[in-house]
Amino acid sequence: MTAPIETTSASAEAQPEAVLAGAGRSQIEGRSLGQIAWTRFKRDKAAVAGGIVVVCLVLMAALAKPIQAVFDLDPNKFNQDLVDPALQAPKGPWGGMSWEHPLGVDPGFGRDLLARVIEGSWVSLLVAVGATLVSVLIGVILGVVAGYYGGWVDSVVSRLMDTFLAFPLLLFAISLSASVQDGFWGLTGLPLRIAVLIFVIGFFAWPYIGRIVRAQTMSLREREFVEASRSLGARGPFIIFRELMPNLVAPILVYATLLIPTNILFEAALSFLGVGIAPPQASWGGMLTDAADRYEADLQYMFVPGLAIFITVLAFNLLGDGLRDALDPRSK
C-alpha cells in the first residue's frame, strides 16, 4: 500500500506564469438574443448590402425636398430647349444626359429624370410603409386574438380572413380611387390620393400577416411559460401583451420587411393604371405610365424608374431574408 502523496503549500500555490497568463483576460460575459441575431446578420453580406441600400433610400425619401432645394432640382420644370420639337425626343445622346441632367430628361417636356426619381421616392415609400403599418396593426391584433382564444373567436376571424383574401382588391382599388377624386373627409389632391392608397393596400392586405401571427400564437399558447402565467392567475390580455407579443416580434418584423416591397409594386401598378398618384406629382409608377406612352421616343425614360423600383424591391427582399435567417436560424 502506497503512502499518500504529500503536497507542500509552495507546490499548491499557482505558478507565476499561470497568474500572468490570465491577468489580462476579461471576464466572459453572456450575450443577449439581440446580440446573437446581430452577429448572424453581419455574416450575411447580401443582407447587409440590402440594409445599406434601404437606409440610403429612406434618407433620400426623407430629405427629398432639401436635396432638390440644394441642387436646384425641380421635378416639374419644363426644359423645352432640350427636346427636339419634331421628334418629341430629348436632344443629344443617351436621352439628353449631361452634367446638369445626369439621368437625362423625359421626352416631350424635358423634365429632369433625377429630380423626378427623387421626388417619386418619398411618395412610393410613404404609401408602402403606411400601408404596411395598417396591415401589421390589424393583422397582429386579430391574429393574436384568434390564435390565443380559439373556439368561435378563431372561427369568426378565420372566415373574415378568407373573405378578405377572396375580395377583388385591384378592382376595388380602381373603383374607390376613381370615386373619391374630388374630395373625401376634408382631403383633396395629393393627400387624398396617398390616404386612399394607404387605406386600400393596407386594409385588404392584413389577412396575410394575420394568418402567420395566428399560427405562431397557437404554437406559443401551449408553451410552459404561458401555462406558468395561467397557473399564477394571469388573464388573457396580460398573457397576450407580456408573454406572447415579445415572442412574436421577430416574425412580425421579418414579414413587415418583406411586405413593404410588395406594397411598392402595388402602388406602382395603380399609378401605372392611372388611379394612383395623379400628375404632375412624380411617382415611379406614373413615370412608367408616361414612358409606356412615349417608349418609341426614349427607352431610357422607362429604364430609369423601372430600375429604381427594381433596386428598392431587391434591397428590401435581401434585408427581409437576412433578418429571417438572423432571428430564426432554424429557417435555413
Rank of each mutant, 00 (worst) to 15 (best):
L170F: 04
L170W: 00
S179Q: 09
L187M: 10
R235H: 08
W206A: 06
Y208P: 00
T217C: 10
W206Y: 07
I209F: 01
F164M: 10
I194D: 04
R230W: 11
R193A: 15
Y208C: 00
W185C: 10
R214D: 12
G233R: 00
L165I: 09
G183W: 06
G236A: 12
F199P: 08
G233F: 01
T217W: 12
P191Y: 08
V180W: 11
Y208T: 12
F167L: 14
L170Q: 00
L176Q: 14
V213R: 13
P207G: 05
A234Q: 05
L187Q: 04
A173T: 07
F203R: 00
R214M: 11
S229F: 05
R221T: 15
W185D: 01
G210I: 07
R211C: 08
R211Y: 09
Q216T: 08
L220E: 13
T217D: 05
D182V: 12
A173I: 04
F199E: 10
L165G: 03
I212W: 13
L170Y: 01
W206F: 11
I209D: 00
G186M: 03
A173Y: 00
P191I: 07
V213Y: 11
R221A: 10
L192N: 14
P168Y: 00
V213P: 13
L192Q: 11
P207D: 06
F225V: 08
V200C: 11
R211F: 11
I198Q: 04
P207I: 03
L197C: 05
A234K: 02
I174F: 03
F167R: 05
F199K: 12
P168K: 05
V213C: 12
W185L: 14
G189L: 02
R221F: 12
G183C: 04
T217E: 10
R230T: 04
T217Y: 12
I209P: 00
G202M: 01
S179K: 12
L170C: 00
L197N: 07
F225M: 06
R221G: 10
T163H: 01
V180K: 14
E227S: 15
F172E: 01
Y208S: 11
V226I: 14
I201A: 13
S231Y: 02
R221K: 15
Q181L: 12
L192S: 12
R211N: 11
I212K: 09
D182S: 15
A173Q: 02
F164L: 10
